[in-house]
């Protein structure tokens, strides 16, 4: 069929500047959000796996539940916080890529935290005595466990990436889908759908899926390499 696939291909082949800009912004926003979520979520998840404190169970349940946070709600929360009438309004961040990064970070942080906790907890059960014997306390064990759990953790990071790259609800609200400024692949798809331009919408969807596929393949390859190389 020469419908969406042909459109997708000719869009890519044309190297259309607006499209490249949209793809670039999508990647920038999503990868930044994944990075931020990892910087916060990996140590937090590991700490949650090793620490024992009252209310720990409640915190774990909360993060597990937040994995199902609707993107629109995450977007709304960030919107209200960043709005000029909100508590952080003076930062003038609403309708900027930074706001989109914040919203997506919020969205995928629970995934990273929950999966990290689960992976590190299992690993700690296996490693605890050996690490204590080697002279590593709980605190020192955190980076060790994160590094040794890297292949499993990668799955969690990819899940976060998938959620961020696929969602439209949060970025639409806090980004505003401004042409040339905060328009991403997903908000562009929404726009084209609303214009009844379904063929173009599907073509953009194919491009997005191809990007996601490429990144996942690369991550999977890296994971396999790490398994072979580092056990």
């Amino acid at each position: 069929m020469d419908g969406p696939f042909a459109t997708a291909f000719s869009l890519i082949a044309s190297g259309d500047a607006a499209l490249m800009q949209i793809i670039g912004l999508s990647l920038r926003v999503t990868l930044s959000a994944v990075l931020l979520a990892c910087l916060i979520g990996l140590p937090l998840g590991a700490a949650l796996a090793l620490a024992r404190f009252p209310g720990r169970g409640a915190v774990i349940v909360m993060f597990n539940a937040l994995m199902g946070l609707p993107p629109v709600v995450a977007g709304l929360v960030v919107y209200l916080a960043l709005s000029r009438s909100g508590p952080l309004g003076s930062l003038a961040l609403l309708f900027t890529p930074t706001a989109m990064i914040i919203a997506q970070t919020l969205l995928i942080l629970p995934i990273v935290v929950s999966l990290t906790r689960s992976v590190v907890e299992d690993l700690w059960a296996e490693y605890r005595e050996q690490l204590l014997s080697l002279g590593a306390g709980r605190l020192r064990a955190v980076p060790t466990l994160l590094w040794d759990g890297r292949v499993s953790l990668l799955t969690g990071v990819l899940a976060g990436f998938g959620r961020a790259s696929a969602e439209v609800g949060a970025v639409l609200i806090v980004g505003g889908n401004i042409a040339g400024h905060t328009r991403t692949m997903t908000t562009a798809i929404t726009l084209e759908t609303n214009r009844g331009n379904l063929g173009l919408a599907v073509a953009l969807g194919i491009i997005l899926l191809t990007l996601t596929l490429t990144l996942n393949a690369a991550a999977w390859g890296a994971g396999e390499w790490a398994k072979r190389r580092l056990g």
Partner: peptide
């Protein structure tokens, strides 16, 4: 002091890195 377990836990790293780990801790 040191201990060797029935099933030793080796870190998912190279042999050298496994030897280096406890030494770096000291």
């Amino acid at each position: 002091q040191a201990m060797v377990f029935q099933r030793p836990v080796l870190l998912r790293r190279s042999v050298v890195a496994n030897l280096d780990y406890p030494l770096a801790l000291t």
